[in-house]
Design a protein around this nucleic acid. Sequence first.
DNA 1: GCCCAGGGCTATC
DNA 2: GATAGCCATGGG
Length: 270
Amino acid sequence: MPCSDCTPIKNFDIEKIADSGQCFRIKKIGADTWRAITGRNYVEITKCHCGNHKFSCTEDEFNRTWKKYFSLDEDNYYTEFYERGLTDPDEYIREAVKFSSGMRILKQDPFETLISFIISQRNRIPKITAAVEEMCCLIGDTVTDKNTGKAFKTFPVASELSNASDALIDSLRVGYRDEYIKAAAKFCYEHSIKSVNSYDRAKALYGVGPKVANCYCLYGLHQLDRFPIDVWIQRILDKHFNGSTAFLERYKGFEGILQQCMFYYERNKV
DNA sequence: GCCCAGGGCTATC
DNA sequence: GATAGCCATGGG
């Protein structure tokens, strides 16, 4: 039974989302509590013993910001995805979807998504997280959340990142990706991130190839038909599907959710 | 020392 | 269009 002050949501598990590698700014801050930041908004989410979640924000903020961010306005869509995945003819897909129950694709800020996934290339998630967090600490704005009273750092906007010194970028320890970051920040400062509104526009940026462009489209533009193929997904394809993605025919419009479930399952299954 | 990490660029064919 | 070598950095 849900508690009186819990928000009952089907197909939503903040813990799995936090560990899914699609976002680098959701952080575990307590035994059952995570903090999320998007734009200038901050929220703390606690998994309750009843299986539901408590949000630290007001109902108005939930409806205006977090409902969208967590794709909680797409319940019917996820219901259909999970029904389809749990009855898939392929055992690996069934297991991956079952194991990932509660996964959702976040609607992240496009500029943050672009820069984060440029940093992600040939890198490890803890290192990506550290670089993103350091970037926010060094050049993000400090904002205080009214509900919790906690101060947090925003992800820098294009002008802030574009104006950052070389020494500051060096201190992020992102190696050869620093030139890619600078190029993307400069482009977005001069042309606006809004002009990066398609796969082709993203891939045209220096340092953005097929994989990062697909991640940008999936997580930043919410194009759920994108299926980014990284080393983990490629291993799954080779091991379980003879290197083929023919199974995607059964997931038109859901490819990105399936990809997230496979990625999470492969990395976290016991 | 080695290999690898949510890849992409460049040169070369 | 395909493939090979290279790219900084840090963990195992």
